[in-house]
Simulated assay, not measured.
Amino acid sequence: MAPTASTRRQFLTLLGLSAAAVGCGTALGGGSSTTGQTKTLRYQGWAGTVTLPELAADLGYLEDVKLEWVGNTISGPQDIQSAATGQTDFGGAFNGAVVKLAANNTPVKAVISYYGADEHAYNGYYVLADSPIRSARDLAGKKVGMNTLGAHAEAMLDIFLRRAGLSAAEASRVEPLVVPPVNTEQSLRQKQIDVAVLGGILRDKALATGGIRPLFTDFQLLGAFSAGTFVMTDRFLDRNPDTARTFVTGVGKAIEWSRATPRDEVVSRMTDIVKKRGRNEDTGPLKYWRSFGVAEKAGLITGKELQLWVDWLAERGDIDKGRIKLSELYTNEFNAAGAGRPSAAASASATRGRS
């Protein structure tokens, strides 16, 4: 059944962590201590995909910092929740989830952008070629399959519906459903869902097969933008500043390497990475990779990519805008590419340590 209006307004409630949940004694970071900084970062990966930290590690950009894979995720909000509670040392999600997490007084900071939308990297909302769905109003009573609720895909759907002039009651008739990314295309073709949210290699693979067409894309909605950031806890940054700097700067270098390197070489490198880690993953979809879509140099955060979601979530009533200070949400302090550039670094010392 379609979600109620109140259900839709509980955007990202799975991130409703209390300050106590990430307070003193939890989000310490792997192996951190008062006598030495950790050199091992625990993280979650994505099946069949090479993340930017994994690419940076393979390129040698993380220097003496090692990555420890603890499992895979299919949810950005879950990934940053794991970082916030100390189960991992960093996590990434779309910026609305990061804002929501901070609004719940969770002591984390965004440290670098890691994905976004451009002409090559975007999320599309696809229907079958012969589908009668042509506009937002045609979505009433229809099912939209996406990787997780309360994240980027649902946010883009909400923006699309709002811009088309649908009321809250009308929008509530559209039903977002969780479908594992690897099954989304098949679910659409078998008509188990009416719209499939597809991005990256899964999108391009589906388009190559044919028989589907886009209803809209996030790039069409918002233009080129950085959509998600990696976060670390304030406590981790306080205790491991050099490790954080090596990590963030290394990821930034990997972003720029991917821009400057021929696509075939990037794909070949990522294919080798997946084969070497021995997790019995399919490397075929990697050939469809085009771009990470990060808008700014080396993943620098300007603030505007977070402000978008502060305004949007506040308008929906999901957060109290008065409790959010943009400068406290992020820092470029640990990104060498940000040297001499305006950032939230000046407020970092004052805002950390509140756990």
Rank of each mutant, 00 (worst) to 15 (best):
P180E: 01
A224V: 13
R245A: 15
R239H: 05
L207A: 03
T249I: 11
L188P: 10
V251H: 07
G211D: 06
E265F: 00
T184S: 06
L188G: 06
A227K: 06
R235E: 15
T243S: 15
R189V: 04
R263V: 13
P181M: 02
R235G: 04
T233H: 09
T233W: 11
G223V: 11
A196Q: 02
S187G: 00
N240M: 07
Q186A: 12
G200L: 05
G228K: 09
L198G: 01
Q192K: 14
A206G: 04
Q190S: 13
T243V: 11
T271F: 08
W257R: 08
E265C: 02
P241E: 13
R269W: 02
T233R: 10
V267Y: 06
R235D: 11
R269D: 00
F236N: 07
F216V: 05
A227G: 15
G223R: 14
Q190W: 02
E265V: 10
A254D: 07
F236W: 15
V195F: 07
P181F: 04
T271G: 11
T246N: 05
L198S: 02
V251W: 09
Q220T: 13
Q186E: 05
F225R: 15
N240H: 07
V251E: 05
A208S: 11
F225A: 14
K191P: 00
A206W: 02
L221G: 02
E265A: 13
T217G: 07
K191R: 15
L188K: 06
R239T: 11
D264N: 06
K205N: 09
V248P: 14
T209K: 11
I201C: 03
T243R: 11
G200T: 02
G228Y: 09
V182R: 03
V231H: 05
F247S: 08
G228M: 10
G210T: 03
G210Q: 10
T229V: 10
M270Y: 01
S258V: 04
P241M: 14
T233P: 13
G228S: 14
P181T: 02
E185V: 02
L221R: 05
L198C: 05
D218A: 09
G200N: 04
L221H: 03
I212R: 01
T217W: 09
S268V: 01
P181Q: 04
Q190L: 14
V267G: 01
L207F: 03
T243C: 13
T271L: 08
I193Q: 01
D242R: 14
T271C: 06
E185K: 00
D218Y: 07
D204Q: 10
R189Q: 04
G250A: 08
V195I: 12
R213M: 04
L207G: 01
T209W: 00
R189P: 01
G223F: 12
G228L: 12
A260K: 14
T249F: 10
P241T: 12
M270F: 04
P181E: 01
F216L: 13
F225Y: 15
N183S: 11
I255V: 15
T229M: 12
T184P: 03
R235F: 09
